[in-house]
């Protein structure tokens, strides 16, 4: 207990001694956490959006003629051998006509005089609901196109490709901002600790001479790093929460207007993980500075 009282007192003294550098470090850590967590938030929300949209995703394989049951079985066998496929459904020409009629609703009278078999038969392929299936969907579509009797394979190709490109971009930006977080926090904290070490060089030398243990000398600096990481991460996430609330307010309104129904803030475990990660990185920065300049 006494050890921690002394350690906290020393850490506070260190931070007061170099308060300007501490302020800069805190600001940098906060900004890094804000940048990283902003992109990470966008990324995981985009993933959620992708999953939700994936529920409605299907490939429609148009056939030149309605397949007989043995041919249907052959199609089923060849399509279901792919792990990515959840289920398939055969839509006959008559069923297709009825669906179209339903879609037209009150305007279905436009179909008067149109033969019931004017729409081609098709197979609806429902892929497994993962984002990775989106990436493979083009290849799968190409494969389906090669099957006999297939006229055309249709899916939201452009939309899926754009969305997938967006997800990929967000993944890269999140990774880059994560690297930025790692570099800035460790570098800035190491730099600040180094300043503190220089400011207290005389005292540290004296502490060794009067019998201080390595832990007695080292722990206040590690605590200082941990505080910088923890407080910086809390500030960064706090700023992101404010930004999130502000954006939510801007887009809030009646359901008919544009809104962000699926956009959510981080769950508590993610918040704790980000704070923990920033704290850990700052401790690492602090530890490296101690090892390098204090030779402990």
């Amino acid at each position: 207990m006494r050890f921690w009282i002394v350690t906290i007192r020393h850490a506070c003294r260190n931070m007061l001694l170099t308060w300007k550098a501490q302020g800069m470090t805190l600001f940098t850590v906060s900004l890094s956490v804000l940048i990283f967590s902003f992109f990470y938030l966008v990324y995981i929300n985009a993933l959620h959006v992708g999953e939700k949209l994936g529920d409605d995703l299907r490939l429609v394989v148009y056939l030149d003629e309605e397949p007989a049951p043995p041919l249907q079985e052959e199609y089923r066998r060849r399509i279901l051998k792919f792990d990515q496929v959840d289920r398939i459904e055969f839509i006959g020409q008559e069923q297709a006509y009825k669906r179209f009629e339903q879609i037209l609703g009150k305007n279905s009278d436009v179909l008067a005089g149109v033969p019931i078999d004017f729409l081609p038969a098709s197979i609806e392929v429902y892929p497994v609901r993962t984002l990775d299936s989106l990436a493979r969907i083009k290849r799968f579509s190409d494969y389906l196109q090669t099957m006999p009797g297939v006229i055309k394979v249709q899916y939201g190709k452009e939309w899926i490709e754009r969305f997938y490109a967006f997800i990929q971009l967000m993944r890269i930006i999140t990774l880059l901002s994560g690297s930025l977080l790692i570099m800035t926090t460790t570098f800035m904290v190491a730099h600040t600790i180094r300043l503190t070490l220089f400011a207290r060089q005389q005292e540290l030398e004296l502490l060794r001479l009067v019998g201080a243990t390595n832990n007695y000398i080292r722990t206040p600096f590690l605590l200082e790093g941990a505080l910088q990481g923890g407080i910086g991460a809390c500030c960064g996430l706090g700023a992101l929460l404010l930004l999130y609330n502000w954006i939510s307010l801007q887009f809030a309104g009646p359901p008919t207007t544009m809104s962000l129904p699926t956009f959510a803030f981080f769950e508590w475990p993610v918040v704790v993980a980000i704070i923990g990660l920033a704290t850990l990185l700052c401790i690492v920065g602090s530890f490296s500075a101690i090892r390098r300049f204090l030779h402990l």
Binding site: R208, V210, G211, T213
Partner: peptide, 13 residues
């Protein structure tokens, strides 16, 4: 090095 404090606590200079 890690045990020097044991000596220094016995020696006042």
């Amino acid at each position: 090095e890690r045990d020097i404090h044991l000596l220094r606590r016995k020696v006042g200079m």
